[in-house]
Design a protein around this nucleic acid. Structure first.
Lengths: 148, 148
DNA sequence: TCTTAATAGATGTATATACACTATTATTTA
DNA sequence: TAAATAATAGTGTATATACATCTATTAAGA
């Protein structure tokens, strides 16, 4: 009751979104710093990995895979194409354009992998195995809670 | 061993950053949808709340409070100033500019609060109390694990 | 078949994010 | 006090994010 008067604006510190964004900003900077030597950003890493593993994929399908907006992925591909890390090739369906990793893309990915693994290890160590595992599980629950 | 051959690129699905960004994108869209009727975005909400609660604050101090880059906050303030939800007033130290909420800002914040609370409740319900509490704790740990 | 729907991708516009750098003012030090 | 250094905020540039809308192509329906 007294708490209500002292906190007329509500507990912003309980905001799920703020907590997620703060953690995202923090971790993104860590990973970007780790990846800096290879010239790849952590936001570009999953795109290259997916292109390498799932073969040439249409934009919409990779967007779904990475839980991102189609148009966001469309924009995010531009730097990768400019650097010749991926190329867009036509599909059977002429509306589709498939994202295909290039040889240069594979090279930069090879260079990125040990740096990424080190960042993974650093975070894992900082949080401890229990917390890290639990966090990854819970984050997946959040993502899956989307109304789709 | 066989696992290594099947996963030559490593387990991207274990990437802490990707998990955080996917969850962030999902939750941000949920909150933005909930807040849409009041014209405020969820990224702007904590700025207004902090301005309302901590009184006029210098840019650097609020940035620290919200765990964001100074220059990011500087840019994010522009739409709020344009909408006259906050104003920048000079401090005693003439280098400083203080972020001060306006009466219009208080109004939009009042309109935003019940919408935000509903979004909070929705997320809380979707995850369940146990998971939600634990997630918030773990996210704070991540944010605090920053090298500062 | 011809018209209409749905689908795939890109663009216009706006905001979010952060590094490198600049300008201005305050503080410290020689 | 003058010069060097700190601190404060803003800009240039680049990428990330997503809604609304557009174009082109395919699929469905009358």
């Amino acid at each position: 009751m007294a708490e209500t008067k002292k906190n007329p604006t509500g507990g912003m510190h309980d905001c799920t979104n703020l907590a997620l964004r703060k953690a995202s900003r923090t971790i993104t900077q860590m990973y970007d710093q780790a990846l800096a030597p290879c010239g790849l950003k952590i936001t570009q890493f999953p795109i290259l990995v997916t292109a390498a593993r799932q073969g040439p994929l249409p934009v919409a399908r990779m967007a779904e895979e990475l839980v991102m907006d189609r148009t966001t992925l469309s924009r995010n591909l531009k730097p990768l194409v400019r650097e010749s890390w991926v190329e867009m090739i036509p599909g059977k369906d002429q509306r589709e354009r498939l994202i295909k990793i290039t040889d240069q893309g594979k090279e930069v990915l090879d260079a990125a992998l040990p740096l990424w693994r080190q960042a993974q290890t650093d975070v894992h160590t900082a949080l401890g195995d229990t917390v890290w595992q639990r966090l990854m599980n819970d984050l997946n629950k959040v993502t899956e809670s989307a109304p789709i």
